[in-house]
Simulated assay, not measured.
Amino acid sequence: MKKLILSFLFLCAQLSLSAQFLKKLSDKAGAAVEKTIDKGLGNGENAGGSSKRTAKAPAAGEAMPSAVTRPSASPQGGSSSTDGTWSAADYGTQPFKLQPGETIVRGEFSLKVSNTGQKINLITSHNGKYFFYENGTRTGPFDRPPLSKLGVFGFNSFSASTRQSNPSKFIEGTGNVRQLVLNGKKYGPFSTILAFYLSPDQERFYALAEKRTGESSDFFLLSHSGTTKLPGYAPTLLVSNNFEHAAAVGSQTQLKARTEQDRYRYAENDDTFVFTSTGAKLGPLKDWNRSKNWISNNGMLIQLKEGSRKQIYINGEPGPSFQRNLENLNALFLSKSGKSGAYYDYGSLYFSDGTHLAYSVLSPAAGTENGKDYLFWLSVKDNNLYVCRKEI
Rank of each mutant, 00 (worst) to 15 (best):
S16Q: 15
A31M: 09
Q202C: 10
I5P: 14
A267P: 07
L194K: 10
F220E: 04
K390G: 13
G44C: 11
G128R: 02
L230G: 01
K119C: 07
S125W: 05
G299H: 01
I5W: 14
S50F: 08
F142P: 08
F158H: 10
P58M: 14
Q14T: 10
G40Q: 13
P364Y: 08
R263K: 12
K169Y: 04
K211C: 06
T139E: 06
P189R: 01
N293V: 09
Q254R: 04
M1L: 15
Y359W: 15
W86Y: 06
I120M: 00
A160P: 09
A47D: 08
I104D: 00
A246I: 10
T162N: 11
K229A: 13
K39S: 15
Q303N: 14
F205V: 05
S199R: 04
G214I: 02
L349A: 06
S360A: 15
F351D: 06
G77C: 01
T276S: 07
F351A: 09
L326V: 05
G48S: 03
S18F: 14
V387M: 07
E108P: 07
E215G: 00
L22H: 10
L11R: 13
I104Q: 06
N43K: 15
A47S: 05
N370M: 10
F196W: 09
G128Q: 03
K129V: 08
F21K: 12
L282V: 03
L282Q: 06
A195F: 13
S66N: 11
L15R: 05
T124W: 07
F190Q: 04
V177D: 13
K339L: 01
F219R: 01
R389K: 15
K229E: 14
L237H: 07
N383M: 07
V181A: 06
L198R: 04
K211Q: 04
L9R: 12
L17K: 05
Y233F: 14
N115I: 05
N127H: 04
P320G: 10
S223E: 00
P71I: 06
I193L: 13
S168W: 11
N156I: 09
I5Q: 15
K339Q: 08
L357A: 01
K52V: 15
V249R: 00
Q179C: 03
L147T: 00
D83Y: 12
T213S: 10
P364A: 02
F275T: 05
P65M: 04
I312D: 04
A31T: 11
P75G: 10
N328Y: 10
N242W: 08
L208N: 05
S66H: 10
S157L: 11
Y187R: 03
